[in-house]
Design a protein around this nucleic acid. Structure first.
Lengths: 350, 350
DNA sequence: CCAATTTACCAAAGCGCTTTGAAAAAAGCA
DNA sequence: TGCTTTTTTCAAAGCGCTTTGGTAAATTGG
């Protein structure tokens, strides 16, 4: 069933039917009712491709999911982010075009998406410290919003980010207040912008208290469960092991927890752990006493904000850039406690 | 830059340029070279919407991601599956259209996808035991492939599934061979087809050995980490706790592991755990001695197979249905060992 | 060397919609 | 009633591509 069939059926012109369906005023209300009715009865929906061709709007947002050939890693926050963004798209009549590419042909993929006219806007995932995609997309002149930022890029562009620096400074201070002095940082890959900022927060907290930053306690890797496990195992086996861990995601933190219990220690008592919690749906870490003390910021919520910002940008091309900082909430759970040394000292005092 | 611009620039007709670009034979090789060159130089790519309108093929595959409003759950295997499918799409020039909908408007979403002509084919995720989507898609006459099956649907349709029954029968037998007699099953939601089949495999293994099936040891829930933790905690606190767990995904198994260590027990010695491992990228459970004994089947690989099957189906409409069974590999890891009772008996014997 | 093929190119129609500009019908006004 | 204004409808152009049905140019064969 296409427009012609429908209009023939109704004895009306395509123009009138189209207008009736699209809510234009120059059509009698009784006619509109009839048209709507017939459209529903025959399950008519205008052909997307014809419609977008005619209007010049693709009504589609592009997401590029780079999958490294070597690591075979898929960002675990991706699904939740997409779920959030997708809600907004549905509400606004946009489609979501997902391009899976191996990371070395990523740039070509953006170029093609735009020159094919397949999308009206693009969302940039996982920005690097110095991300070439931002310059590329500006050059291509396509509206885009970055989930995160790119520290070394001077240009103005739209982004929605969590205040990573503040969050990590906060949790580090929290651990310091509990008497921890040797605090390990298990961070994401070093070239990721979020990881840099989190590292900066951690360092800032230590330096503010006049403490040495020990590079031997800072780790950058793909944030797998195994990464957390391996590092924690080797650290805990050292002579002077850290008493606390700051971990960039709940996934490696699960590995850390495993290492702690394998070492016969108790998390929250012998060793403290704080995490950044993206509020992934399958790892709920909430309730009145979450398993992990965490700075929490829902990545799904971020997806909603990024999507909305992009849609606004597409609707109002001249508008200024959208830059939005989300704050992470510090929620204290069962994974943290006073440093053993401090606890002993306090007990002695009694 | 569009076709007209490019052909004007070259002093050729749109026809010739189009044919040159699409590899048709009726164009001189030297002309084709010139055209290709110019296209590359000016970064020309044919407008997707115009092209698909003209050809009548959308060159797009639809995926519907239902997100339950109440649970706010996003299937954690989704990202890996998509990554696999996306590779195949890229290789074959297909786009991936992702529709995020809340689960009660799922049917409408499929209808619309088809009547809008937005997709050439659809992939069905997470089939229920009696899934209405299969009848719907057949009625709509759109090519589709199901990731999984739907037990109660008689009709012929294309699917790619893991042999869940066999896999779970196998791991249950494995536990029985180790002397375990009280084996708990932590399964997915009861209406999910895969969960039913896995349950059937578990039951079959027990019955084959003439053992009672204890419904108090079988659990159906959304497969979160918390689910595993809660159930395992309460079971281990019972008078006659199970000595082994069969768990439908690595995620709840992580919760089970946590419960075991919280109870002061050792996994692989006091309590055994076997899992179904989807080989999610952030929870690698491989190497020569994986953390969990598992029946493994890469969901990413499944994504590739499903996508390829659908593309073939679209290319050859008359072809018979594609039904493909993937077998899961049993890999023994460190999470299983002899049942404590059996071990004691054997020691006594010496 | 000229007719019959083959090769290389082109004009125009069509994909299904929106939108412009015009016309017909209805309503308002004197 | 006749004329103007407003409302309602329509025919046709256009979005950017592919593809059909040509025609002119080059090649072949007798």
């Amino acid at each position: 069933m296409n427009l012609k069939d429908l209009s023939d059926l109704l004895g009306l012109s395509q123009t009138t039917v189209s207008r009736a369906l699209n809510g234009y005023p120059e059509v009698r209300e009784s006619t509109r009712q009839k048209v709507m009715e017939a459209a529903r009865a025959h399950n008519y929906a205008p052909n997307t491709r014809a419609k977008t061709l005619a209007t010049g709007k693709a009504m589609t947002i592009g997401h590029v999911l780079p999958v490294s050939k070597k690591h075979e890693m898929v960002n675990p926050i991706f699904a939740d982010f997409i779920a959030g963004a997708g809600e907004i798209y549905s509400d606004n009549g946009f489609d979501l075009l997902l391009s899976v590419v191996d990371d070395d042909s990523e740039e070509a993929s953006y170029r093609k998406l735009v020159s094919r006219g397949a999308v009206d806007g693009i969302i940039v995932h996982g920005p690097k410290v110095n991300d070439s995609r931002i310059a590329l997309l500006r050059e291509l002149g396509v509206p885009f919003v970055v989930h995160g930022r790119s520290t070394e890029i001077e240009a103005d562009y739209s982004w929605v980010d969590v205040n990573n620096t503040r969050a990590f400074q906060r949790v580090t201070e929290f651990l310091l207040d509990l008497g921890h002095r040797r605090i390990a940082l298990l961070n994401g890959l070093a070239d990721m912008d979020f990881a840099t900022r989190r590292g900066a927060g951690y360092v800032a907290a230590l330096e503010e208290r006049g403490m040495q930053v020990d590079p031997a306690l800072m780790f950058h890797e793909e944030m797998t469960e195994n990464f957390g496990f391996e590092i924690a195992c080797s650290l805990l086996a050292q002579d002077n092991p850290p008493t606390a861990f700051v971990v960039s995601s709940i996934i490696p933190a699960i590995g850390v927890r495993r290492a702690i219990s394998d070492a016969g220690l108790e998390m929250g008592k012998d060793v403290s752990v704080v995490i950044h919690d993206d509020a992934l749906s399958y790892f709920s870490n909430d309730g009145d006493e979450p398993a992990f003390t965490a700075v929490r910021s829902s990545v799904r919520q971020a997806g909603r904000h990024v999507a909305q910002a992009l849609i606004n940008k597409i609707a109002t091309p001249g508008a200024p850039v959208h830059q939005e900082m989300l704050e992470a909430v510090l929620a204290v759970g069962r994974s943290t406690g006073q440093a053993p040394a401090l606890r002993q000292a306090l007990e002695q005092e009694k």
